[in-house]
């Protein structure tokens, strides 16, 4: 109940943020721009529209999560509202979870809006509703949930600018960590290899949520991977949230 109240309050606060609408505007412009890019290409035009559209959803969604998520806890501390909040019978985990779900709800609404525009644009070109694109969008949403938890984690102990940089780094690492696999194959056995393997398994693999290429090309996807990727997202998010809670509990607000 308390989590829900904090979540709705966070949602109300987030949707008043002008930066959210600025990012949304750019996302819509980018989705529209895919139509122009399609004209410049050699090959399948609808493919370009789908690629650019899905990339825009993912990229601008991540930007929203970073820009708003990194200020969530910090703002409460800066404005000293956290003192009033935590003096009430609210546990710190309730406060953090409320903040997290509030932003997740905001992102869901924003992603829904962008998806409607994107699917509309695809429909305008193919004259059919491509439901399989929703799978790619669902996994983009899961990725955004994870990024939100990371933004929240950094927001617990750092300034918004630093938190934004750290979360952005997390996002970039998440999308390039697969390169470690190639490195592991080339390193001889020893400490270096063991370290690379440990890093490879520990670092976030956001490519687990990336089904854009398969969906756009209509490639068969093993159903098992959906389940594993969802579980991976849930457990990684849980891990980051627990870490955030451990750090947040250490902070003294009394």
């Amino acid at each position: 109940m308390k989590i829900r109240a904090i979540a709705f309050n966070t949602f109300r606060e987030a949707i008043r943020d002008r930066i959210l609408y600025l990012i949304l505007f750019f996302a819509v412009v980018c989705i529209g721009f895919s139509r122009l890019l399609a004209l410049l290409t050699v090959g399948d035009r609808v493919k370009i529209i789908k690629d650019v559209g899905l990339a825009s959803l993912s990229l601008f969604g991540a930007l929203m999560a970073i820009m708003i998520g990194t200020g969530l806890v910090y703002k409460e501390i800066e404005k000293k509202t956290i003192y009033t909040l935590l003096s009430k019978p609210i546990h710190r985990f309730q406060f953090l979870l409320g903040k997290f779900f509030g932003l997740v709800l905001t992102l869901f609404i924003m992603l829904l809006l962008m998806s409607i525009i994107f699917l509309g644009l695809v429909f305008f070109h193919t004259f059919k509703v491509e439901w399989q694109l929703l799978i790619a969008i669902l996994f983009i949403f899961l990725e955004l949930c994870l990024i939100t938890s990371v933004a929240l984690l950094f927001s617990c102990f750092s300034t918004p600018i630093l938190s934004s940089l750290f979360t952005l780094a997390f996002y970039l690492i998440g999308h390039t960590a697969w390169g470690l696999e190639i490195l592991i194959q080339k390193i001889k056995s020893g400490f270096g290899k063991a370290l690379a393997q440990a890093l490879y398994h520990f670092l976030p693999d956001l490519e687990n949520f990336n089904f854009k290429t398969e969906i756009v090309h209509n490639l068969p996807i093993p159903p098992k991977i959906f389940l594993y990727s969802i579980l991976y997202g849930v457990f990684y998010t849980l891990f980051v949230l627990i870490l955030a809670l451990l750090i947040f509990r250490k902070r003294d607000f009394i």
């Binding site: 410049l40 290409t41 290429t213 093993p222 991977i225 990727s229 579980l231 991976y232 990684y236």
Partner: peptide
Amino acid sequence: TCGVFMNLKIATDRIMRKKVPGSSIIYLPK
């Protein structure tokens, strides 16, 4: 949770995903 997500990562790596190698580059504009 750390142990679980690391195991899930190993499990997802074992599943072969069909890819179109270089699919993104062949559609690059001039």
